[in-house]
Nucleic acid binder design. Structure first.
Lengths: 206, 206
DNA sequence: CTACTTCTGTATCGATCGCTTCGTAATTAA
DNA sequence: TTAATTACGAAGCGATCGATACAGAAGTAG
């Protein structure tokens, strides 16, 4: 690492990875060809393989980067809002905005970039599936925290509630990719939050 | 058609199309290779091209067939239930069951089989996108019918409501493909219907 | 029968896939 | 300077992609 011995790398690895992430996000894993990836990254195949190992390993790093940057919207909402209801609502609204950010591919990379694939790439689909499950899990954990802190009643079905809001998030990505506007998605988020008050009885004031 | 002049076709065109539909449903458009398609259909490439024209035209026929069969669940629910609320609820529950039918690929072919693709297949993505828009439109039309028939108040935002339930349907396909059980999806459908009573004020009895 | 038409299997087409070989450039260590 | 090491660009690897050319088989028309 750092100042190795041989000829130094002539490109910025982080910048190249960010370009690759964009291509995968836009095209999906399989449809992102080496030609398009190397073109966007400004390098030739041998440099890509020397720096990242393979197309799949590059994709894994791209997903990781996506999680640390774009994926931060959800994590931040769940962490910073003071009640479970506010947290889930902020996550939905935040992603509605992120999914329609001008200049970026629409929808979530984790949801869209490998919904189906050839059998030899099942490992890639599984990677994203696990990411989606982890996202749903983080929603549930936040609702459970609400139970512990008293803003959600103890008899709430937190599992189903988390599954519901995860489902809405997944659907928002499809809507975004189909061309829905930011206001469209915010209206969907608002409609989804209407379920909360019916499903989650207001806790008695302590 | 029928008994033409030359050598008669040695395979059942409808049966072969049904096999092809299954492959596209499972793998998606791009990941379904000619080798896998012809293997499942029990024919060789020249027969496929003579009968269907191209991979894309075969896919278009497969999507059409899917709409006439699997897609009928939604259409029937919207047509046969007597109120908009019951219709939307039945559509959600019906698809929750259809998406987890043993022996069939999970989730909806229209939602999953081309979420992303190479630029040269954009026409395929557009085809499915239009199908999804038509589905959302049919939800809205059913809610509007509820307005006309008095089971939905006139000041209801039917556009946003339809977008919300379409979003849930899209999300259900992702959940189904990720391995969610039928009960999981039914719980999500139930949670989604909880929004109805908050968003759609009960109409005054006429 | 012969002539014509259409379908089927074999064997392949050119293009593109992800990936690698190879010769050379650019750097550090001695 | 010399040796060792690493990255680069050009070219091309075998495999697979969707799609076809071709010849023979199987039917109808006369």
């Amino acid at each position: 690492m750092g100042a190795g011995r041989g000829r130094p790398r002539a490109f910025d690895r982080d910048a190249a990875l960010e370009r690759a992430m964009r291509v995968f996000w836009e095209r999906g894993y399989e449809a992102a060809s080496l030609a398009e990836l190397t073109g966007a990254m400004g390098i030739r195949p041998p440099s890509l393989y020397a720096a990242f190992g393979s197309k799949e390993q590059l994709f894994r790093e791209a997903v990781e980067l996506y999680g640390r940057t774009e994926g931060g919207v959800t994590a931040r909402a769940l962490r910073e809002e003071s009640t479970a209801r506010e947290a889930i609502g902020a996550a939905l609204r935040g992603n509605a905005c992120a999914y329609t950010e001008p200049g970026s591919p629409r929808g979530c990379m984790v949801v869209l970039s490998a919904t189906t694939c050839a059998p030899e790439h099942e490992t890639v689909r599984t990677l994203l599936c696990d990411d989606r499950r982890a996202m749903e899990r983080s929603l549930r954990d936040r609702i459970d925290r609400g139970v512990a802190e008293g803003d959600v009643p103890a008899d709430t079905d937190t599992r189903s509630l988390a599954a519901f809001y995860a489902t809405v998030l997944f659907g928002l990505s499809v809507q975004a990719r189909d061309g829905a506007t930011r206001d469209d998605l915010l209206a969907v988020a608002h409609a989804a939050m209407a379920s909360w008050d019916t499903l989650v009885p207001h806790p008695s004031v302590r």
